[in-house]
Design a protein around this nucleic acid. Structure first.
Lengths: 252, 252
DNA sequence: TTACTTTTGATCAAATTTAATCAAAATTGA
DNA sequence: TCAATTTTGATTAAATTTGATCAAAAGTAA
């Protein structure tokens, strides 16, 4: 096994366990402690983990990681939500795809469809560019390097130039009282534009975000046609949401 | 079996297995390890896989991490042209970057500058996205998967929304008689838009394209301020170009 | 603090992998 | 067809990686 493979396994193992000792890693990777130490030193230099005495801890906010490899706690749930969302997509559809991590998970389930995708997400772009049956319309604008997506006025204008059958969006918070909320203005303007120009709006949202409010309030619950979430939601919250006439789809 | 076939099989095999050793690949392709190593080196240069000691791993996000740039005959020349072109860029500049391979080579020489880049080229985007001192404005539009760039009406409209200090463009053909020519309408409309909205237009063009005419005639020579080319051009052609008042910069 | 244990980083030899070279084979173009 | 070019595979020397050893550094407990 070479360094690249070990690096990948070390990061995955750390992501699951939080922290591991050199000897635990040596066992997992079937390598000597000397090798593990060398590896941990190199990976720590890249800023992808925290070196501790005797081992390593995972970095909570790695500077630069795409969505693609994140294998965290909510991943299984996000996948199921994404799979359900993708089942709403039919051949011939024109769809908007937002730049959140749950929406990104839809990619694997979209690869066999013949559709046109309009997106501002670079990871989605990267994931779908090699699929012959999918045409991509890239939303231009200022590049947000952290989110790996474009945003700003030009991006909003671009979206207003199109109409899609369906929009698949994410939010940072959702509640019966405050509707849809986002961390930042820039995100919310993009999402608002998607909502305005789509025939049907599907919101992908794991349970942790339901009942939580974020900073910018940008749309009413009524803007959403279908909310796809997981079964970890309080029944009280579900009732509250359903009373506002929302179509709910619960997976997992 | 030739290189192209092997390349395809290597990438497919890697995509399935994640990572493979040189010897495993040699067995799969029925070729010698020496050949496999040469192939892996070439493919890794294109940015389509990750070379490891003893083998190779698949690249997770080919577009966002690397780039398949024709690493061919003219590469040294293209680099020198690109380096000269980059020397025209100053801190604070806003520049348009076209999607040709010579323009792409400018990236390495731009990384230390503080500038704003407006481009429709995904490889350029990928190359510059991690440079903190460079802000990127991505030109949206229909994605041309082969050229890895956006184009079309929306892209042209986007460009018209900006003015840049300098535009760095490529062409398929250039002659005193026919001016600038391109292979396709789609490319030419983008380049035309760059020319219209830039204070200064720099054309990067190796000797092989000078005196050659392509299909679409889209701009006069007078649209160009500086032509950067290499020393393999006929002196006759040089004279013809200079007589039309073009500022010539010859490298190599 | 001191004594004790653990972890680390450096060094080194063994094993593996690579790049360079060159002749044979295949391909190309006239 | 033949000659020229390119590609391939074998052979090497050079470079890289690995695991073991051991002194120094860091942590722990009294």
């Amino acid at each position: 096994m070479n360094f690249q493979e070990r690096k990948k396994k070390i990061l995955t193992a750390l992501d699951d366990a939080g922290s591991l000792t050199v000897f635990e890693l040596a066992e997992i990777l079937d390598a000597s402690p000397a090798t593990i130490r060398r590896d941990l030193g190199d990976i720590a230099d890249e800023g992808l983990l925290l070196r501790t005495h005797g081992g390593a801890m995972k970095m909570e906010n790695p500077i630069l990681t795409g969505f693609s490899e994140k294998s965290g706690v909510n991943n299984y749930v996000k996948e199921r939500i994404a799979e359900k969302a993708a089942s709403y997509v039919q051949d011939g559809d024109i769809i908007f795809l937002d730049c959140g991590s749950t929406v990104f998970q839809m990619c694997r389930f979209l690869k066999k469809k013949s559709i046109r995708v309009i997106t501002n997400s670079l990871p989605i772009l990267a994931e779908l560019i090699d699929v012959p049956s999918i045409q991509i319309n890239l939303i231009g604008g200022e590049l947000n390097k952290a989110r790996k997506a474009s945003h700003g006025d030009k991006a909003v204008q671009h979206i207003h130039g199109y109409h899609a059958h369906k929009a698949f969006i994410g939010v940072d918070g959702l509640s019966a009282e405050n509707g849809l909320t986002a961390h930042s203005e820039l995100e919310s303007t993009i999402t608002t534009a998607f909502i305005r120009n789509a025939g049907q709006v599907m919101l992908l949202c794991d349970a942790t975000k339901i009942g939580r409010d974020s900073y910018v309030k940008f749309a009413e619950l009524s803007a959403i046609h279908t909310l796809i979430t997981d079964s970890h939601v309080d029944s009280a919250k579900i009732t509250a949401l359903q009373q506002s006439g929302l179509h709910l789809e619960v997976v997992g």
